[in-house]
Nucleic acid binder design. Structure first.
Length: 394
DNA sequence: GACTCGTGGGT
DNA sequence: TACCCAAGAGT
């Protein structure tokens, strides 16, 4: 027998809600109704898996339990709490947003879409998520899960990588929200996408809305959602300098702070340079002298490793180098390039640290790994003979 | 619309 | 290995 659109929609929403009541996961941000904490969780969950977020969420809330605590914290502390989670502008934007909540809304996360949606880092999805989950407002929260579920159940063939498709799905989502159940319904949609209606090999046989899923009835569930393929990340070959101090800098390494904008903004790193086909040894010696005024001698290539961002693939050759300046370690003020009189460094983006001091700086994971591996092998890296061609992975 | 912006897990 | 992708937003 033929079912009407209205009947199908009713079936979808009520079956989904009933399933969610039984199967919903016990997640930390589901144990609170504090809009601030829910907002923190939603920012963290942007493009990030639940299992990855959980420990960060606990630490972050413990460290910044309230709007005021986060608003008043030094930015560096916030970034340190975010270290390793990726997309670091989220952390800065979150603090900017929370400061506006404090100043303009008296510390209460606003419950109006135009207000919360104008906060830094809060887009259409996050606005709807906070409004529905924290305030139970009947607003859609359409993310990748929801688009996948909708495209399959309602057999929507539109390209979900187009912004207009998300807009259309928000209209649909809004109409489907059962009276007074916005928070549960939106979370149920995402929960279904995460647990049952997965991107690959969905578990249709245990799906609560299988009987009326148009995608499955047409044998299309594996082809949906339709999505334009992403550009593969461009490859960049780079050489990394792990510079060992001498004299009173023995046991220390040199780190550099990145610019305040762009990739890994403001974070610390090992110096590294683009190195298409050049000889890494020669290039590092030249670059460090010309661009940082640092006299160094590369000992050889330690290992090669890859690190892939969303849009860039770094192919890194890590060289261990000796610092040649101030070999006797007579004076701290001579340890970094500075004024002609040698009165000290004129730049604050270079530092000597001990590998144990990683905690005092904010590093992206790619460099944390390299430095930790170095520290682990520190009592004598085995430089047996020429090491330039040796490659290792860890 | 096309880029930019991290990282880790699954297949 | 090499993809794909994950509770997206800003420019």
């Amino acid at each position: 027998m033929e079912r009407s659109t209205a009947e199908i929609r009713q079936y979808f929403s009520s079956n989904l809600l009933e399933w969610f009541r039984i199967h919903k996961r016990d997640l930390p941000w589901r144990r609170t109704n504090d809009p601030y904490r829910i907002m923190v969780s939603e920012i963290m969950l942007q493009q990030t898996r639940v299992d990855t977020v959980i420990p960060y969420y606990h630490r972050f809330i413990e460290r910044f339990p309230t709007v005021e605590a986060l608003a008043e914290a030094p930015e560096e502390d916030v970034l340190k709490a975010w270290e390793g989670l990726g997309y670091y502008s989220r952390a800065r934007n979150l603090q900017t947003a929370v400061r506006e909540v404090k100043e303009r809304y008296g510390g209460r996360v606003p419950d109006k879409r135009d207000q919360i949606g104008s906060l830094k880092g809060v887009g259409p999805y996050t606005a709807g998520a906070v409004l529905s989950i924290a305030y139970n407002r009947p607003e859609p929260a359409v993310d990748g899960n929801v688009m996948r579920v909708f495209s399959r159940f309602f057999l929507i063939l539109d390209d979900t990588s187009k912004p207009g498709t998300r807009t259309e799905m928000e209209k649909l989502a809004r109409e489907l929200i059962p009276e007074g159940e916005a928070g549960s319904f939106n979370q149920a949609l995402m929960e279904l996408g995460a647990l049952i209606c997965t991107p690959k090999s969905p578990n249709c046989l245990i799906c609560p809305v299988m009987e009326n899923c148009a995608g499955r009835l047409n044998g299309m569930e594996e082809q949906l959602p339709v999505k334009k393929k992403a550009q593969p990340p461009r490859r960049e070959q780079r050489v990394v300098a792990l510079i060992q101090g001498a004299g009173n800098r023995t046991g220390q390494i040199l780190i550099r702070r990145r610019p305040d904008e762009g990739l890994l903004a403001g974070m610390w790193e090992l110096p590294h340079y683009a190195a298409a086909d050049a000889d890494g040894m020669v290039l590092l010696k030249e670059k460090l002298l010309e661009e940082e005024r640092l006299p160094i001698e590369p000992l050889g290539k330690w290992f090669r490793t890859n690190h892939t961002f969303s849009h860039i693939r770094w192919e890194l050759d890590v060289y261990v180098c000796n610092y040649l300046g101030n070999p006797q370690g007579l004076s701290d003020s001579m340890d970094l390039p500075g004024s002609a009189t040698g009165g000290g460094s004129d730049r604050d983006d270079l530092r000597w640290i001990e590998p144990q001091e990683l905690e005092r700086f904010v590093f992206p994971n790619v460099f944390i790994r390299i430095i930790r591996e170095y520290a682990k092998r520190l009592p004598g890296i085995d430089w047996n003979g020429p090491i330039a061609e040796r490659e290792e992975e860890f």
